[in-house]
Protein backbone atom coordinates (compact mmCIF):
# COMPACT_ATOMS: atom_id res chain seq x y z
CA UNK A 1 0.00 0.00 0.00
CA UNK A 2 1.59 3.23 -1.09
CA UNK A 3 -0.78 6.08 -0.34
CA UNK A 4 -3.29 5.96 2.52
CA UNK A 5 -6.81 6.21 1.21
CA UNK A 6 -9.48 7.89 3.29
CA UNK A 7 -13.04 6.88 2.59
CA UNK A 8 -16.24 8.63 3.63
CA UNK A 9 -19.54 6.85 4.20
CA UNK A 10 -21.06 5.74 0.86
CA UNK A 11 -17.72 6.03 -0.94
CA UNK A 12 -16.92 3.07 -3.13
CA UNK A 13 -13.71 1.16 -2.61
CA UNK A 14 -11.66 1.51 -5.79
CA UNK A 15 -10.88 -1.82 -7.48
CA UNK A 16 -7.15 -1.17 -7.62
CA UNK A 17 -6.95 -0.89 -3.85
CA UNK A 18 -8.27 -4.40 -3.26
CA UNK A 19 -5.78 -7.19 -2.63
CA UNK A 20 -5.07 -9.10 -5.79
CA UNK A 21 -4.58 -12.49 -4.16
CA UNK A 22 -7.38 -14.58 -5.62
CA UNK A 23 -6.74 -17.92 -3.96
CA UNK A 24 -8.90 -17.08 -0.95
CA UNK A 25 -12.24 -15.34 -0.83
CA UNK A 26 -11.90 -11.68 0.02
CA UNK A 27 -12.84 -10.94 3.62
CA UNK A 28 -14.48 -7.72 4.66
CA UNK A 29 -13.70 -6.04 7.95
CA UNK A 30 -15.89 -3.63 9.89
CA UNK A 31 -17.07 -0.47 8.19
CA UNK A 32 -17.42 -2.00 4.74
CA UNK A 33 -20.45 -3.48 3.08
CA UNK A 34 -21.04 -5.25 -0.18
CA UNK A 35 -23.79 -3.87 -2.35
CA UNK A 36 -25.24 -5.40 -5.47
CA UNK A 37 -25.78 -2.90 -8.18
CA UNK A 38 -27.72 -3.68 -11.31
CA UNK A 39 -25.87 -2.28 -14.30
CA UNK A 40 -25.82 -2.80 -18.03
CA UNK A 41 -23.58 -5.88 -17.75
CA UNK A 42 -25.81 -7.81 -15.39
CA UNK A 43 -25.36 -7.28 -11.66
CA UNK A 44 -21.97 -6.30 -10.30
CA UNK A 45 -20.82 -5.97 -6.77
CA UNK A 46 -19.52 -2.83 -5.20
CA UNK A 47 -17.82 -2.43 -1.86
CA UNK A 48 -19.04 0.63 -0.02
CA UNK A 49 -17.83 2.25 3.14
CA UNK A 50 -20.43 2.67 5.89
CA UNK A 51 -18.11 4.66 8.14
CA UNK A 52 -15.43 7.20 7.54
CA UNK A 53 -11.95 5.82 7.90
CA UNK A 54 -8.66 4.77 6.47
CA UNK A 55 -8.76 1.87 4.02
CA UNK A 56 -6.41 -0.88 5.09
CA UNK A 57 -5.70 -4.07 3.24
CA UNK A 58 -3.84 -7.18 4.19
CA UNK A 59 -2.60 -9.04 1.14
CA UNK A 60 -1.57 -12.18 2.99
CA UNK A 61 -4.92 -12.83 4.59
CA UNK A 62 -6.79 -11.29 1.71
CA UNK A 63 -8.75 -8.93 3.90
CA UNK A 64 -9.86 -5.39 3.39
CA UNK A 65 -11.12 -3.29 6.27
CA UNK A 66 -11.66 0.25 7.36
CA UNK A 67 -9.64 1.73 10.16
CA UNK A 68 -12.15 4.04 11.72
CA UNK A 69 -11.80 6.80 14.26
CA UNK A 70 -11.38 6.27 17.98
CA UNK A 71 -15.06 6.01 18.82
CA UNK A 72 -16.03 5.39 22.37
CA UNK A 73 -18.93 3.19 21.38
CA UNK A 74 -18.30 -0.28 20.11
CA UNK A 75 -20.65 -1.93 17.65
CA UNK A 76 -20.08 -5.68 17.38
CA UNK A 77 -18.99 -6.97 13.98
CA UNK A 78 -18.58 -10.62 13.05
CA UNK A 79 -15.10 -12.04 13.68
CA UNK A 80 -14.05 -9.29 16.06
CA UNK A 81 -12.12 -10.37 19.11
CA UNK A 82 -13.65 -8.90 22.26
CA UNK A 83 -13.09 -9.07 26.00
CA UNK A 84 -16.43 -9.82 27.60
CA UNK A 85 -17.45 -9.97 31.23
CA UNK A 86 -19.79 -12.70 32.45
CA UNK A 87 -22.95 -11.15 33.83
CA UNK A 88 -24.91 -14.28 34.66
CA UNK A 89 -25.33 -17.75 33.28
CA UNK A 90 -28.38 -19.69 32.20
CA UNK A 91 -28.86 -23.31 31.15
CA UNK A 92 -27.35 -23.00 27.70
CA UNK A 93 -25.59 -19.68 27.71
CA UNK A 94 -23.38 -17.32 29.58
CA UNK A 95 -24.80 -13.82 29.33
CA UNK A 96 -21.89 -11.47 28.80
CA UNK A 97 -21.32 -7.75 28.87
CA UNK A 98 -19.36 -6.61 25.85
CA UNK A 99 -20.07 -2.96 26.49
CA UNK A 100 -21.75 -1.78 29.68
CA UNK A 101 -25.39 -0.73 29.40
CA UNK A 102 -26.11 -2.54 26.17
CA UNK A 103 -27.95 -5.79 25.66
CA UNK A 104 -26.01 -8.82 26.82
CA UNK A 105 -24.21 -10.98 24.32
CA UNK A 106 -24.66 -14.76 24.45
CA UNK A 107 -21.79 -17.16 24.84
CA UNK A 108 -22.70 -20.84 24.57
CA UNK A 109 -21.82 -22.95 27.61
CA UNK A 110 -20.18 -25.44 25.28
CA UNK A 111 -18.39 -23.08 22.94
CA UNK A 112 -15.02 -23.51 24.61
CA UNK A 113 -12.12 -25.64 23.51
CA UNK A 114 -12.79 -29.26 24.31
CA UNK A 115 -15.91 -28.46 26.28
CA UNK A 116 -18.54 -31.08 26.89
CA UNK A 117 -21.42 -31.16 29.34
CA UNK A 118 -19.02 -32.36 32.04
CA UNK A 119 -15.88 -30.43 31.22
CA UNK A 120 -17.33 -27.03 30.41
CA UNK A 121 -15.82 -24.16 32.38
CA UNK A 122 -17.89 -22.94 35.30
CA UNK A 123 -17.58 -19.19 34.99
CA UNK A 124 -18.82 -16.96 37.74
CA UNK A 125 -20.25 -13.49 37.51
CA UNK A 126 -17.55 -10.93 36.85
CA UNK A 127 -15.09 -13.28 35.19
CA UNK A 128 -13.60 -12.33 31.86
CA UNK A 129 -13.44 -14.22 28.60
CA UNK A 130 -11.61 -13.51 25.41
CA UNK A 131 -14.12 -14.35 22.71
CA UNK A 132 -14.85 -13.95 19.05
CA UNK A 133 -18.08 -12.45 17.75
CA UNK A 134 -19.81 -15.29 15.93
CA UNK A 135 -22.95 -13.57 14.72
CA UNK A 136 -24.60 -10.25 15.29
CA UNK A 137 -28.05 -11.02 13.96
CA UNK A 138 -30.11 -8.67 11.84
CA UNK A 139 -32.21 -5.72 12.84
CA UNK A 140 -32.89 -4.06 16.13
CA UNK A 141 -32.78 -6.16 19.27
CA UNK A 142 -30.86 -8.92 17.55
CA UNK A 143 -28.71 -10.99 19.84
CA UNK A 144 -24.96 -10.94 19.56
CA UNK A 145 -23.43 -14.38 19.85
CA UNK A 146 -19.90 -15.01 21.01
CA UNK A 147 -17.73 -18.07 20.83
CA UNK A 148 -14.41 -19.16 22.29
CA UNK A 149 -13.53 -21.78 19.66
CA UNK A 150 -12.92 -21.77 16.00
CA UNK A 151 -15.90 -23.81 14.70
CA UNK A 152 -13.80 -25.22 11.86
CA UNK A 153 -11.02 -26.67 13.99
CA UNK A 154 -12.60 -26.91 17.42
CA UNK A 155 -9.50 -25.23 18.81
CA UNK A 156 -9.21 -22.00 20.74
CA UNK A 157 -7.25 -20.01 18.18
CA UNK A 158 -5.46 -16.88 19.26
CA UNK A 159 -5.79 -17.39 22.99
CA UNK A 160 -9.58 -17.51 23.17
CA UNK A 161 -11.10 -18.59 26.43
CA UNK A 162 -11.35 -17.44 30.03
CA UNK A 163 -8.88 -14.79 31.18
CA UNK A 164 -7.63 -15.26 34.71
CA UNK A 165 -5.69 -12.76 36.73
CA UNK A 166 -4.23 -9.69 35.12
CA UNK A 167 -5.93 -6.38 34.70
CA UNK A 168 -8.19 -4.77 32.13
CA UNK A 169 -7.55 -1.27 30.86
CA UNK A 170 -10.00 0.77 28.84
CA UNK A 171 -8.83 2.34 25.61
CA UNK A 172 -10.75 3.78 22.68
CA UNK A 173 -12.04 1.37 20.07
CA UNK A 174 -9.79 2.99 17.49
CA UNK A 175 -6.76 2.31 19.64
CA UNK A 176 -7.86 -1.30 20.10
CA UNK A 177 -8.13 -1.70 16.33
CA UNK A 178 -4.68 -0.22 15.85
CA UNK A 179 -3.21 -2.52 18.49
CA UNK A 180 -4.68 -5.57 16.81
CA UNK A 181 -3.31 -4.51 13.44
CA UNK A 182 0.08 -3.70 14.91
CA UNK A 183 0.32 -7.15 16.42
CA UNK A 184 -0.61 -9.05 13.27
CA UNK A 185 2.70 -10.00 11.74
CA UNK A 186 1.88 -9.17 8.14
CA UNK A 187 1.08 -5.60 8.98
CA UNK A 188 4.61 -4.51 9.65
CA UNK A 189 4.95 -2.45 6.55
CA UNK A 190 2.02 -0.35 7.71
CA UNK A 191 3.89 0.88 10.75
CA UNK A 192 4.77 4.12 9.06
CA UNK A 193 1.12 4.99 8.59
CA UNK A 194 -0.24 3.80 11.86
CA UNK A 195 2.82 4.69 13.85
CA UNK A 196 2.16 2.47 16.81
CA UNK A 197 5.43 1.42 18.35
CA UNK A 198 4.43 1.55 22.00
CA UNK A 199 3.86 -2.21 22.30
CA UNK A 200 7.10 -3.29 20.65
CA UNK A 201 8.97 -0.70 22.67
CA UNK A 202 7.44 -2.00 25.90
CA UNK A 203 8.23 -5.55 24.86
CA UNK A 204 11.88 -4.70 24.32
CA UNK A 205 12.25 -2.83 27.60
CA UNK A 206 10.35 -5.29 29.76
CA UNK A 207 11.84 -8.48 28.35
CA UNK A 208 14.38 -8.68 31.16
CA UNK A 209 11.61 -8.47 33.76
CA UNK A 210 9.77 -11.46 32.35
CA UNK A 211 7.72 -9.77 29.67
CA UNK A 212 3.97 -9.51 29.66
CA UNK A 213 0.92 -11.09 28.11
CA UNK A 214 -1.67 -9.03 26.38
CA UNK A 215 -5.11 -9.58 24.86
CA UNK A 216 -6.79 -6.79 22.93
CA UNK A 217 -10.56 -6.67 22.59
CA UNK A 218 -12.10 -4.63 19.83
CA UNK A 219 -14.59 -3.33 22.38
CA UNK A 220 -11.89 -1.04 23.71
CA UNK A 221 -10.49 -3.26 26.42
CA UNK A 222 -6.94 -4.45 26.83
CA UNK A 223 -6.11 -7.26 29.20
CA UNK A 224 -2.56 -7.27 30.54
CA UNK A 225 -0.95 -9.93 32.66
CA UNK A 226 2.62 -10.32 33.85
CA UNK A 227 2.55 -13.31 36.14
CA UNK A 228 6.13 -14.04 34.98
CA UNK A 229 7.45 -10.84 36.46
CA UNK A 230 7.18 -12.07 40.08
CA UNK A 231 7.63 -9.13 42.46
CA UNK A 232 7.26 -6.38 39.92
CA UNK A 233 4.18 -7.96 38.30
CA UNK A 234 1.83 -5.25 39.52
CA UNK A 235 4.12 -2.43 38.50
CA UNK A 236 4.75 -3.86 35.05
CA UNK A 237 1.02 -4.31 34.47
CA UNK A 238 0.26 -0.75 35.54
CA UNK A 239 3.12 0.58 33.42
CA UNK A 240 1.85 -1.21 30.31
CA UNK A 241 -1.69 0.02 30.93
CA UNK A 242 -0.59 3.59 31.46
CA UNK A 243 1.55 3.61 28.33
CA UNK A 244 -1.34 2.36 26.22
CA UNK A 245 -3.88 4.75 27.70
CA UNK A 246 -1.68 7.81 27.40
CA UNK A 247 -0.68 6.96 23.84
CA UNK A 248 -4.38 6.68 23.08
CA UNK A 249 -5.51 9.84 24.84
CA UNK A 250 -2.76 12.09 23.63
CA UNK A 251 -2.52 10.52 20.19
CA UNK A 252 1.23 10.35 20.38
CA UNK A 253 3.64 10.07 17.49
CA UNK A 254 6.06 7.12 17.42
CA UNK A 255 8.88 9.30 18.66
CA UNK A 256 6.82 10.54 21.62
CA UNK A 257 5.61 7.02 22.34
CA UNK A 258 9.18 5.90 22.89
CA UNK A 259 9.78 8.85 25.19
CA UNK A 260 6.59 8.06 27.09
CA UNK A 261 7.60 4.44 27.62
CA UNK A 262 10.99 5.50 28.99
CA UNK A 263 9.39 8.14 31.20
CA UNK A 264 6.74 5.87 32.67
CA UNK A 265 9.09 2.96 33.27
CA UNK A 266 11.47 5.29 35.08
CA UNK A 267 8.54 6.79 36.95
CA UNK A 268 7.49 3.36 38.16
CA UNK A 269 11.11 2.56 39.06
CA UNK A 270 11.17 -0.45 36.76
CA UNK A 271 14.28 0.49 34.80
CA UNK A 272 16.94 2.90 35.87
Amino acid sequence: MSVPLVLLPSDEVPQDHLPTNNSNPLRLGPGLRILSQPSSKGSSHVLTATQAGLLTTDAKRNTVSLLSFPNRRYIPTVNDFVIAQIHHSSVDFFHCMVTPHTAHALLGQLSFEGASKKTRPMLKQGELVYARVQSVGVGAGAEVELTCVNPATGKADGGLGPLTGGMVFDVSTGMAARLIRASSSSAEHNDAIEGLVVLSELGKKLESLGGFEIAVGRNGKVWVDCSNAAESAVKVTVAVGRCLQETDQQNLHPHDQKKLVTKILRDMKLVS
Partner: peptide, 18 residues
Protein backbone atom coordinates in the same frame (compact mmCIF):
# COMPACT_ATOMS: atom_id res chain seq x y z
CA UNK B 1 -14.88 -7.64 36.88
CA UNK B 2 -13.23 -9.91 39.44
CA UNK B 3 -9.82 -9.46 37.79
CA UNK B 4 -10.06 -5.67 37.98
CA UNK B 5 -11.16 -5.64 41.61
CA UNK B 6 -8.44 -8.07 42.68
CA UNK B 7 -5.81 -6.19 40.77
CA UNK B 8 -6.73 -2.80 42.22
CA UNK B 9 -6.57 -4.22 45.74
CA UNK B 10 -3.33 -6.07 45.04
CA UNK B 11 -1.74 -2.97 43.51
CA UNK B 12 -2.74 -0.83 46.49
CA UNK B 13 -0.98 -3.29 48.75
CA UNK B 14 2.16 -2.23 46.93
CA UNK B 15 1.09 1.40 47.03
CA UNK B 16 0.56 1.54 43.29
CA UNK B 17 -2.44 3.19 41.72
CA UNK B 18 -3.64 2.54 38.20
Amino acid sequence: SIAERDFILEALRENVRL
